[in-house]
Write a protein that binds this DNA or RNA. Structure first.
Length: 115
RNA sequence: AAAAGUGGGCGCAUGAUCGCUGGCAUUCUUUGAGAUGUCAGAGGAAAGUCCGAACUCCGUAGGGGACAGUGGUUCAUAACGUGAACAGGGCGUGAGUCCGUGGAAAGUGCCACAGAAAAGAAACCGCCCGUUACUUUAGAGUGAUGGGUAAGGGUGAAAAGGUGGGGUAAAAGCCCACCGCCUUGCUGGUGACAGUAAAGGGCACGGUAAACCCCACUGGGAGCAAGACCAAAUAGGAAGGCGUUUGAGGGCGACCCGUCCAAGGCCUUCGGGUAGGUUGCUUGAGGUGAUACGCAAGUAUCAUCCUAGAGAAAUGAUCAUGGCCUGCAUUGCAGGUACAGGAUUCGGCUUAUAACCCACUUUUAUUG
RNA sequence: GCCCCUAUAGCUCAGUGGAUAGAGCAGUAGGUUCCUAACCUAUGUGCGCAAGUUCGAUUCUUGCUAGGGGCA
């Protein structure tokens, strides 16, 4: 069951997204930003927002890559949080490994900032 | 063989592992946005939203006008601004291809600059005939003025039939021949239209309607975020009940008494309805094949098939094998494999699109 | 998904089918000043793209492209 990704692990409603946007903590990166908010579900939930990408094929491509990353790297992320990927229009990431590297950079930067 | 034209096809394939969505079946200590199994799961343009319809709601006596759209003819179609065939015109040696292709003798407007004149034609130069003044032997010349003239000049995108002959003071369809044009007839065609050594007209009618406009035809409005059903919370509404200084309810107060506020109160029900959920939702003017009719677009009959249904929105990732293309270069290595992703559903149009394949046709060259 | 609007100079905007397309700000060069600003003079730069109608198109028609807005 480790690598499944059911719909309960996705943010589905506008209200859920708005809660994360209002109260979450933002980490700005080069190709995308992370917005993180602790939840009371006991597991992570994922939301994806792609802005400024013209064609539906490229938009869906980003969403699939990010979902694939999220599915394969559960322990890599903080636990028990809602996390939204806000992808910018100049994003060039094309594989879950590239996303993993970028997220790793962001999280270590954030850790240093807190210390 | 080369260069073209037209029409059509294909739009990488197979397997393994992990994962996603839906249908069906089974299952339950957790009845869940559950689990297991099985089947299915993006396009030729799904795109742009440029047209047309289905479907849904709202509106609606009938007629006219306004407004908008369309615009050769005949068919096709549920319908269309789409398609087919044909007609007319432009382009091309050709196969072919392109065309918003009704009306300018209903009216109004516009036609810059140039030019005498740009529209009920017109006299600037020129040509011709008079009158008159001056010069002159005369013929004639110069100036002024009255007329005739559209042959010639030059301008322009465009200047009111063309060529030749006759004719005249000079000219002119003024007259004649041929060509062109218009009207009427005849013939062919369903028709647009075409033909005509038929008759008549001397020729009138510049262009522009993707300027206003006229004519013919078509059009009620909104759109699945349509619409239908269920329905938290909050505010307000309606009805009924309680209560009316015999005090419901609330404040002060630990509580009682007391005191203060008090119909703008409390309770129940109903209706509408937000978040949210369910539905609309995929069997349809459907696909494929055969036969018949039709030049064709297409239509009819029979057989056969069922082929996505999400909702912050599923079809992805990794690996392997093999196609195809390119490069290196020799039988391996490297790189590439387009445009692009359903959102109520259909019919079209338009736009994007790597590489490859097929059929027919044309022109040129060579050979037979 | 549906429905609208816009595109003119580096920026903000004008512009009856007809001239070398205009105004303000900005830019460049020169003048003025001891120097700078202000001021004066001169000067460059454009009609989103492609077809069509017309003698002629920024303007009219069609198709694209880009941007913006509305419908809960």
């Amino acid at each position: 069951m480790r690598y499944t990704l059911p719909k309960t692990a996705l943010l589905r409603k506008s209200a859920q997204y708005n809660a994360v946007y209002r109260q979450g903590k933002r980490i700005r990166g080069r190709h995308f930003s992370l917005i993180i908010l602790a939840n009371d579900q006991g597991f992570n939930r994922l939301g994806i927002s792609v802005h400024g990408v013209k064609t539906a094929v490229r938009r869906n491509r980003f969403k699939r890559v990010v979902r694939e990353f999220f599915r394969l790297n559960r322990e890599f992320l903080p636990q028990g949080v809602d996390i939204v990927f806000a992808i910018r229009k100049d994003c060039i990431l094309d594989s879950s490994q590239a996303v993993r590297d970028a997220v790793s950079v962001l999280l270590t930067q954030q850790g240093k900032g807190e210390k």
